[in-house]
């Protein structure tokens, strides 16, 4: 991608974020019961979606790495884990703030909250593992296996509100909410998607450059060096 195109995409993401905030804060109507605090949804839900999307991409990349090793796949897996952890942390923090006026508490050991917290702790562990293992080949294989194990929690997070009727509400559909709210949510979802793409590409390039530096030193394992094309 050329530099002007990259700058254009970053500006587009910023414009989507700013306009999305305006739509969520000023244009969308307040909820009948929750009033203005429901506006937190326009940041909380897209963050959670992006976290689950990044986790799904991490799973796919980990499987692809074990199928055919390459530093590019390893670098992308690292990027998806870190960026997913960022969006997941934002989602859980915003959910806690939303919970205080609506549930009366910042935190409850609700199945959705608990499974999401487990997912975040697991990705923090995944990133810690990557830091502790010096051998790039071993690190890539181990983290790919751990990434696949963590992914078991992703569908559990998504379906937790359906499997266990609990404090957290079930997923809304466009049929159950005001059309203005649907538009505000979708707009912010696309804004967060644009930010996710930018973060993933940037973090991938950082990770790949790091792999290149590691594997060009004379005593580095050569397993996947040839696979970087």
């Amino acid at each position: 991608m050329s530099k002007p195109l990259r700058i254009g995409f970053v500006l587009l993401a910023l414009a989507l974020l700013v306009s999305g905030a305006w739509i969520g804060l000023a244009w969308a109507p307040p909820d009948r019961e929750m009033g203005h605090v429901q506006r937190i949804m326009y940041m909380h839900v897209p963050s959670a979606w992006m976290a689950l999307l990044a986790a799904t991409m991490n799973f796919g990349t980990c499987v692809a790495y074990l199928w055919k090793a390459s530093w590019k796949k390893d670098a992308f897996a690292e990027a998806t884990a870190e960026v997913g952890l960022l969006f997941g942390t934002i989602a859980i923090l915003l959910g806690a703030i939303w919970g205080r006026p609506t549930w009366g508490v910042y935190w409850a050991w609700d199945p959705r909250l608990t499974t999401m917290a487990i997912l975040l702790v697991a990705y923090a562990g995944y990133l810690a593992l990557r830091r502790f293992v010096d051998d790039p080949d071993r690190r890539a294989v181990w983290s790919a296996v751990v990434g696949i194990i963590i992914a078991v929690d992703v569908p559990v997070v998504y379906f937790s509100v359906k499997w266990w009727k609990s404090l957290h509400q079930v997923q809304s559909t466009p049929k159950t909410v005001d059309p203005q709210m649907v538009l505000a949510l979708r707009w912010n979802a696309f804004a967060f998607l644009a930010v996710l793409i930018i973060f993933l590409v940037a973090r991938y390039r950082i990770a790949l450059a790091s792999r290149m530096r590691e594997t060009t030193v004379p005593d580095a394992p050569s397993g996947a060096r040839e696979a970087v094309v």
Partner: peptide
Amino acid sequence: IRGGWGYVWTAY
């Protein structure tokens, strides 16, 4: 729930 803008601004 009435008001609650403090929560909204904090979240954003």
